[in-house]
C-alpha cells in the first residue's frame, strides 16, 4: 500500500511540469517512500480538501467584473476564501482560485 502512494505521488510530481510544458528531470537524493497515513496525493484528497486546495481556470464572460465572479464562485462553493488572478482591465480569462486556508 505504501509503495502505491509513493508511485502515484511520483507520477503526479513528474506530470506537474509536463502539464504546462515545463521540462525538468528529477534526481533522487534519498531513496525512500512516503507513508500513506499522512496527507494525500493531490488528486485523491477527500472532496472538501480537494476544493479547499483547488484552482479553477475559469472562462469569465465579459460583463461582470472579476470581483463579482469571485463572489459568485465563493457563494456557489460555500468557501470562505477565494481570489482571482485577473486584473482591473478587461480580463476574459480569469483564474478563479477556490481555496480556504484558514
Amino acid at each position: 500500500m505504501e509503495g502505491d502512494v509513493t508511485t502515484l505521488g511520483r507520477k503526479f510530481i513528474e506530470g506537474l511540469g509536463r502539464l504546462c510544458g515545463f521540462e525538468e528531470r528529477f534526481y533522487v537524493k534519498v531513496d525512500e517512500g512516503t507513508d500513506g497515513r499522512y496527507g494525500w496525493v493531490p488528486t485523491m484528497r477527500p472532496i472538501d480538501k480537494y476544493v479547499e486546495y483547488g484552482v479553477i481556470n475559469l472562462d469569465k464572460p465579459p460583463g461582470p467584473t472579476s470581483h463579482e465572479v469571485v463572489a459568485w464562485v465563493k457563494k456557489l462553493l460555500n468557501i470562505p476564501k477565494a481570489g482571482h488572478g485577473g486584473t482591473l482591465e478587461l480580463p476574459t480569462l480569469l483564474l478563479g482560485v477556490g481555496a480556504g486556508i484558514p
Binding site: F12, I13, L16, G17, L19, C20, F22, E24, F26, V30, E32, T34, D35, Y38, G39, P42, T43, R45, I47, Y50, V51, Y53, G54, V55, I56, N57, V97, G98, A99
Partner: peptide, 28 residues
C-alpha cells in the same frame, strides 16, 4: 464528485512552472 473533480484542478498546478524540491515525510 466526479464532475467537480474535473472542473477544479489541484492547486499544485500553480507551481507547475517552478523548479521543484521534494521533501522527505520527516521534513514536511
Amino acid at each position: 464528485e466526479d464532475l467537480l473533480r474535473k472542473t477544479i484542478m489541484p492547486g499544485e498546478v500553480l507551481a507547475c512552472q517552478m523548479p521543484k524540491v521534494v521533501l522527505r515525510d520527516t521534513a514536511v
